[in-house]
Simulated scan of single mutants.
Amino acid sequence: MLISVIIPVYNVAPYLRRGLDSIIAQGGDDFEIILVDDGSKDASPAICDEYSLRYPFIKTYHIPNGGVGHARNFGIDKAQGQYIEFLDSDDFLDEGLYEKFRTVLNTHPDIDACFFGLKDFTEGRSNEGHFVKEGLYKMQTSLCKTEMDYSLQSLYLSVKQSFLFFSPSTKFFKTSLIRDHEIRFREDLHYYEDYLFNLHFFFHAKTIFAIGGKAYYNYVHHPGEHLGGKYTEASVIVDVAKEIYSLSERLPMSPQFHEYNVIEYYNNLLHAIDSTYDVKAFGKEAKTMQLIRLWLSEIKRLGHKDSFVNYLGNRKSLLAVPNPLYVYIMENLRMLALKFINK
């Protein structure tokens, strides 16, 4: 079997059929769909059972609610395909993706992974989306530009810049590589656990194909898509930011990729500072000054300040004076302005 599609399911009855139909419409008899009902309380379990009865290649498992990471790990253990794809249960695929992937494997039968593009979808409209230059990417040590264009270094920079690295849903992962290196989703996190999975996987990948020219994955925006989202403590955001930076630096590196990793790290630390202004943070994680000092010290230690200032755009004034008290005052003024605007 070629592909195992793992779909964690939790209270997505209005959207689940469209996603399942989009996989079935890919055609062929070389894939399975693994539905992991994560304790849904709506009609989702019944829809899963309905599709399992109609299609022998669809398997449904009902498990107690344990979170999306746990559901995906459960699916990994059940997968029988050479490659694993993760689909979010409220999203869907455009036709032709699996046919394209099969064509890729005819020429490159032993790739470790395959990237494909993503586009935002709101009912009735979508955009062109994000995708990168098509081709086979390998580890390169030469500085020859023509070779570096299809190096893993250039690919990882491109997919980070085009927001394709974060989610596991825009990739086919080689199952044996996942199992050989015991790569799993963190079940103690609900913040960037999917990004961490990707970083662990791609540390071991040697050859990757990128499908370009079209974004096949539809990331669906709908009312209530973020309902039930949990508050993430600033300390967790900082720990994850450090781990993302550390894991990213283990990937095939170029000066441009390193600079991007540093800027991404600074931005994640800034997100931790912003999170202390959440109403749930007061009295618990309101350690704004401590985080500001950490942020400024890391900028001093790692450099690339000018590039980060350019990245900040209309927030660049935050670093006009590299002083914790100044940053604290600027942050408070910004939050007051946001409250006034949102009234």
Rank of each mutant, 00 (worst) to 15 (best):
F101N: 10
D90Q: 05
R102D: 07
T122N: 09
S89D: 15
L143C: 03
Q140N: 04
A113R: 09
L143A: 01
K119E: 07
N127E: 12
F115I: 14
L143S: 04
E147G: 00
S89P: 08
E128V: 06
D149H: 06
F116D: 04
T103F: 08
V104S: 12
K100H: 14
F121V: 12
T122W: 13
S142V: 00
N106L: 14
E99N: 11
D94P: 02
G124M: 13
F131C: 00
E99S: 13
K138Q: 06
T107A: 15
G124C: 10
C114Y: 03
L136K: 04
F92Q: 10
G135T: 00
E147P: 00
G96W: 04
L105R: 13
F101L: 09
E99F: 05
R102V: 10
Q140Y: 01
D149S: 06
F116A: 03
G117F: 02
F92K: 11
D112A: 10
L136R: 05
K100C: 10
S142T: 11
G96M: 07
S126P: 00
S89M: 12
F131P: 00
K100Q: 14
C144P: 00
F121P: 08
C114H: 07
M139P: 02
A113P: 10
K100A: 10
E95W: 04
E99T: 11
L105I: 06
D120T: 07
L93F: 15
L93E: 06
S151T: 03
L136I: 00
R125K: 15
E123T: 08
T107Q: 15
H108T: 09
D90I: 04
E123W: 10
V132M: 02
Y137A: 00
G96E: 05
L118P: 03
H130G: 01
T103H: 14
D149L: 12
T122E: 08
L93R: 07
G117P: 02
E134C: 00
S126W: 04
F92S: 10
R125F: 14
R125T: 12
H108Q: 13
N106W: 07
L136D: 01
L93P: 02
K145I: 06
I111P: 07
F101S: 12
I111R: 09
